[in-house]
């Protein structure tokens, strides 16, 4: 009875994963606001009412598009920065390597609210050092839609590249040196070694960090909420999580919020599955 041995793990998974997701799905089909929670009004079944309301909201689609594009930009930038610095780590001496590691770990360990506030201060139009150094006067970085998204992207990359860097660095270290040496002897350039030797060997690690980044960056909340003051001028910097908070949770419309949660869950699941499928089609078992 191997299942008996697995039972404890399955119970934990069921309790921590299946049950909450089940509740999330269930609530998204009900009318469930504070009035229902505290018994002021009876709970009623709404079918797809919450979803219809959500999909009928033009702003939802704009926010969804912005979220996907913003998350994609964040993932690409984070991976590029993380991988480049991981390669750099393998090429420098011990002291600069330690310094880079410590700096990255510092960024990693900084709480998102603190990091966001500090970045905002750095780019503050009145007191920020960045404008002073660049000679931009009192230019406001958070006023324009793209410049505000860019500022947030910088912060997101800053606080999430260390995970990619450390993981990829560990992976590179595990690659046998003979392989790299052979490539170098054959006259391969640095870029060529990365593309044809390291990247394929690091594939499983890159898959993990990519999926992790996609999930993190799709769900970004704190940075947008703090740095653009709850979604930017006229909501121009809203992403799905902040939108869900404002539309639903802040006013206790738990059912609408759950519907948004279910939509996010499905999108993330689809992205992950498609990505895994693509990798598998390329012939490599993970």
């Amino acid at each position: 009875m191997p299942w008996l041995y697995l039972a404890p793990a399955l119970v934990v998974i069921g309790g921590l994963l299946v049950y909450p997701v089940y509740q999330l799905g269930l609530i998204s089909f009900l009318e469930y606001t504070q009035a229902q929670v505290s018994g002021g009004e009876p709970t009623s079944f709404q079918g797809f009412g919450n979803y219809a309301r959500l999909f009928g909201d033009e702003q939802f689609w704009q926010v969804l598009l912005a979220t996907v594009l913003f998350a994609a930009a964040c993932v690409v930038s984070t991976l590029a920065a993380g991988c480049a610095l991981a390669v750099l780590l393998t090429r420098v001496r011990a002291v600069p390597r330690l310094a880079l590691m410590l700096a990255a770990l510092g960024a990693w360990a900084t709480p998102a609210v603190t990091g966001s506030t500090v970045w905002l201060l750095l780019f503050d139009p009145d007191f920020g050092p960045v404008n002073r150094i660049l000679g931009l006067g009192d230019h406001s970085w958070t006023y324009g839609r793209f410049s505000a998204f860019f500022l947030v992207l910088l912060e997101v990359v800053w606080c999430s590249f260390p995970f990619v860097m450390v993981t990829v660095y560990a992976g590179i270290r595990a690659v046998p040196t003979e392989v790299l040496e052979a490539a170098a002897l054959d006259g391969a350039s640095q870029w060529r070694i990365w593309r044809s030797v390291l990247a394929p060997m690091l594939r499983p690690i890159l898959v993990i960090v990519t999926i992790q980044s996609v999930i993190w960056d799709f769900k970004v909340f704190t940075q947008i909420y703090v740095m653009t003051n709850g979604g930017g001028i006229a909501g121009q910097n809203l992403v799905l999580n902040v939108y869900a908070y404002q539309q639903a949770f802040a006013s206790s419309q738990y059912s609408l919020g759950s519907a948004i949660g279910v939509v996010m869950l499905l999108i993330l699941l689809a992205v992950t599955l498609v990505y895994l499928r693509l990798l598998r089609r390329q012939g490599e078992e993970l």
Binding site: L10, V18, Y22, Q23, I27, Y32, Q36, V37, S38, G39
Partner: peptide, 15 residues
């Protein structure tokens, strides 16, 4: 297992 859990779980709480 999931089915057992689902049947055990009732509707969201109302006080």
């Amino acid at each position: 297992v999931a089915a057992v859990l689902v049947t055990a779980a009732c509707a969201p709480q109302t006080s």
